Simulated scan of single mutants.
Amino acid sequence: MTHPIDARLAELGLTLPDSPAPAANYVPYVQVGNLIFVSGQISMDANGMIKGVLGDNMSVEDGAAAARLCGLSLLAQVKAACGGDFSRFKRAVKLTGFVNSTKEFGDQPKVVNGCSDLLVEVLGEAGRHSRSAVSAGALPFGVAVEIEGIFEIE
Protein backbone atom coordinates (compact mmCIF):
# COMPACT_ATOMS: atom_id res chain seq x y z
CA MET A 1 0.00 0.00 0.00
CA THR A 2 1.28 3.46 -0.89
CA HIS A 3 2.07 5.74 2.04
CA PRO A 4 0.02 8.99 2.07
CA ILE A 5 3.18 11.10 1.65
CA ASP A 6 4.18 9.17 -1.48
CA ALA A 7 0.61 9.47 -2.75
CA ARG A 8 0.64 13.23 -2.15
CA LEU A 9 3.95 13.61 -3.98
CA ALA A 10 2.52 11.69 -6.93
CA GLU A 11 -0.67 13.77 -6.85
CA LEU A 12 1.47 16.92 -7.07
CA GLY A 13 3.56 15.42 -9.88
CA LEU A 14 6.70 15.48 -7.74
CA THR A 15 9.46 12.89 -7.61
CA LEU A 16 12.04 12.66 -4.87
CA PRO A 17 15.61 12.70 -6.12
CA ASP A 18 18.03 9.97 -5.15
CA SER A 19 19.40 10.76 -1.70
CA PRO A 20 22.45 12.88 -2.53
CA ALA A 21 25.75 11.53 -1.25
CA PRO A 22 27.84 13.78 1.00
CA ALA A 23 30.33 16.01 -0.82
CA ALA A 24 32.87 15.93 2.03
CA ASN A 25 33.61 14.22 5.36
CA TYR A 26 30.14 14.08 6.91
CA VAL A 27 27.04 11.91 6.81
CA PRO A 28 23.74 12.88 5.13
CA TYR A 29 21.77 12.55 8.36
CA VAL A 30 22.13 11.58 11.99
CA GLN A 31 19.42 10.11 14.19
CA VAL A 32 19.36 11.12 17.85
CA GLY A 33 16.42 9.58 19.69
CA ASN A 34 13.35 10.28 17.60
CA LEU A 35 14.94 13.18 15.69
CA ILE A 36 16.62 13.07 12.28
CA PHE A 37 19.14 15.86 11.66
CA VAL A 38 19.55 16.19 7.89
CA SER A 39 22.73 17.82 6.60
CA GLY A 40 22.43 20.84 4.32
CA GLN A 41 20.91 20.02 0.95
CA ILE A 42 22.08 22.25 -1.89
CA SER A 43 19.99 23.56 -4.74
CA MET A 44 20.20 21.14 -7.63
CA ASP A 45 18.00 19.58 -10.26
CA ALA A 46 18.40 16.91 -12.94
CA ASN A 47 20.75 19.23 -14.85
CA GLY A 48 23.08 19.80 -11.89
CA MET A 49 23.67 22.52 -9.33
CA ILE A 50 21.55 25.66 -9.38
CA LYS A 51 24.02 28.48 -8.93
CA GLY A 52 23.48 32.17 -8.45
CA VAL A 53 23.50 35.12 -6.10
CA LEU A 54 20.19 36.59 -4.94
CA GLY A 55 20.19 40.34 -5.37
CA ASP A 56 22.68 40.04 -8.23
CA ASN A 57 21.96 37.51 -10.98
CA MET A 58 18.99 35.59 -9.57
CA SER A 59 15.38 36.58 -8.83
CA VAL A 60 13.47 35.83 -5.64
CA GLU A 61 11.21 33.52 -7.65
CA ASP A 62 14.17 31.57 -9.04
CA GLY A 63 15.65 31.36 -5.54
CA ALA A 64 12.36 30.05 -4.13
CA ALA A 65 12.25 27.42 -6.89
CA ALA A 66 15.80 26.38 -5.93
CA ALA A 67 14.75 26.18 -2.26
CA ARG A 68 11.80 23.99 -3.25
CA LEU A 69 14.25 21.53 -4.78
CA CYS A 70 16.25 21.56 -1.53
CA GLY A 71 13.00 20.54 0.17
CA LEU A 72 12.63 17.53 -2.11
CA SER A 73 16.20 16.50 -1.26
CA LEU A 74 15.45 16.89 2.46
CA LEU A 75 12.43 14.60 2.08
CA ALA A 76 14.55 12.08 0.17
CA GLN A 77 17.04 12.00 3.05
CA VAL A 78 14.25 11.60 5.62
CA LYS A 79 12.79 8.73 3.62
CA ALA A 80 16.23 7.07 3.51
CA ALA A 81 16.62 7.60 7.27
CA CYS A 82 13.25 5.89 7.78
CA GLY A 83 14.42 2.77 5.94
CA GLY A 84 13.11 3.67 2.50
CA ASP A 85 9.52 4.54 3.36
CA PHE A 86 7.71 7.25 5.28
CA SER A 87 5.91 4.92 7.73
CA ARG A 88 7.91 6.25 10.71
CA PHE A 89 7.68 9.94 9.72
CA LYS A 90 5.93 12.19 12.24
CA ARG A 91 6.65 15.86 11.47
CA ALA A 92 9.05 18.56 10.29
CA VAL A 93 10.58 20.36 13.27
CA LYS A 94 13.06 23.01 12.08
CA LEU A 95 14.68 24.32 8.91
CA THR A 96 17.73 26.50 8.57
CA GLY A 97 18.01 28.07 5.13
CA PHE A 98 21.15 29.71 3.77
CA VAL A 99 20.73 32.04 0.80
CA ASN A 100 23.70 33.06 -1.34
CA SER A 101 22.96 36.77 -1.53
CA THR A 102 24.38 40.25 -1.71
CA LYS A 103 24.66 42.22 1.51
CA GLU A 104 21.82 44.50 0.33
CA PHE A 105 19.41 41.62 -0.34
CA GLY A 106 16.80 41.22 2.41
CA ASP A 107 14.28 38.71 1.04
CA GLN A 108 15.90 35.53 2.36
CA PRO A 109 12.60 34.52 4.02
CA LYS A 110 10.80 34.72 0.66
CA VAL A 111 13.44 32.49 -0.90
CA VAL A 112 13.32 29.86 1.88
CA ASN A 113 9.52 29.91 1.62
CA GLY A 114 10.04 27.73 -1.46
CA CYS A 115 11.08 24.89 0.85
CA SER A 116 8.64 25.71 3.66
CA ASP A 117 5.70 25.89 1.26
CA LEU A 118 6.68 22.56 -0.29
CA LEU A 119 6.78 20.82 3.10
CA VAL A 120 3.32 22.10 4.02
CA GLU A 121 1.98 21.29 0.55
CA VAL A 122 3.23 17.69 0.80
CA LEU A 123 2.94 17.01 4.54
CA GLY A 124 0.02 19.22 5.59
CA GLU A 125 0.11 20.22 9.27
CA ALA A 126 3.01 17.81 9.85
CA GLY A 127 5.05 20.03 7.52
CA ARG A 128 4.75 23.17 9.66
CA HIS A 129 8.06 23.93 11.31
CA SER A 130 10.20 26.53 13.02
CA ARG A 131 12.75 28.19 10.77
CA SER A 132 15.69 30.49 10.22
CA ALA A 133 16.47 32.10 6.86
CA VAL A 134 19.86 33.76 6.68
CA SER A 135 22.13 35.41 4.16
CA ALA A 136 25.40 33.81 3.17
CA GLY A 137 28.13 35.70 1.33
CA ALA A 138 28.93 32.47 -0.53
CA LEU A 139 27.81 28.86 -0.51
CA PRO A 140 29.61 25.66 -1.57
CA PHE A 141 30.14 25.37 -5.32
CA GLY A 142 28.39 28.74 -5.83
CA VAL A 143 24.91 27.27 -5.27
CA ALA A 144 22.04 29.65 -4.63
CA VAL A 145 20.48 27.92 -1.61
CA GLU A 146 21.36 25.34 1.04
CA ILE A 147 18.84 24.11 3.60
CA GLU A 148 19.24 21.75 6.55
CA GLY A 149 16.43 20.29 8.59
CA ILE A 150 15.36 18.48 11.72
CA PHE A 151 12.52 15.98 11.50
CA GLU A 152 10.70 13.83 14.06
CA ILE A 153 10.06 10.13 13.48
CA GLU A 154 8.43 7.39 15.55
Score class of each variant (00 low, 15 high):
residue 141 F to V: 11
residue 28 P to N: 13
residue 147 I to C: 05
residue 143 V to A: 10
residue 119 L to I: 00
residue 67 A to N: 00
residue 149 G to L: 00
residue 78 V to F: 12
residue 129 H to L: 07
residue 22 P to K: 08
residue 96 T to E: 02
residue 21 A to E: 15
residue 56 D to M: 11
residue 13 G to M: 10
residue 153 I to R: 03
residue 137 G to Y: 03
residue 149 G to S: 08
residue 122 V to K: 04
residue 32 V to C: 06
residue 135 S to F: 00
residue 131 R to A: 02
residue 120 V to R: 10
residue 41 Q to T: 09
residue 25 N to R: 14
residue 95 L to I: 06
residue 34 N to T: 08
residue 151 F to M: 08
residue 135 S to K: 02
residue 45 D to Y: 13
residue 82 C to T: 07
residue 84 G to R: 10
residue 127 G to M: 07
residue 121 E to N: 11
residue 68 R to Q: 08
residue 29 Y to C: 01
residue 126 A to Y: 00
residue 29 Y to L: 00
residue 46 A to S: 15
residue 12 L to P: 08
residue 33 G to R: 05
residue 9 L to P: 10
residue 153 I to Y: 06
residue 31 Q to A: 13
residue 104 E to M: 10
residue 10 A to P: 06
residue 79 K to I: 15
residue 115 C to Q: 11
residue 86 F to V: 14
residue 16 L to N: 10
residue 11 E to M: 08
residue 85 D to F: 06
residue 94 K to I: 04
residue 125 E to M: 08
residue 22 P to Q: 04
residue 129 H to Y: 01
residue 144 A to E: 08
residue 73 S to M: 09
residue 57 N to T: 11
residue 119 L to S: 04
residue 6 D to R: 06
residue 9 L to S: 11
residue 114 G to T: 07
residue 50 I to D: 03
residue 37 F to N: 06
residue 26 Y to D: 11
residue 150 I to W: 04
residue 73 S to C: 12
residue 50 I to V: 14
residue 138 A to Q: 10
residue 119 L to Q: 00
residue 22 P to F: 06
residue 60 V to P: 05
residue 124 G to D: 11
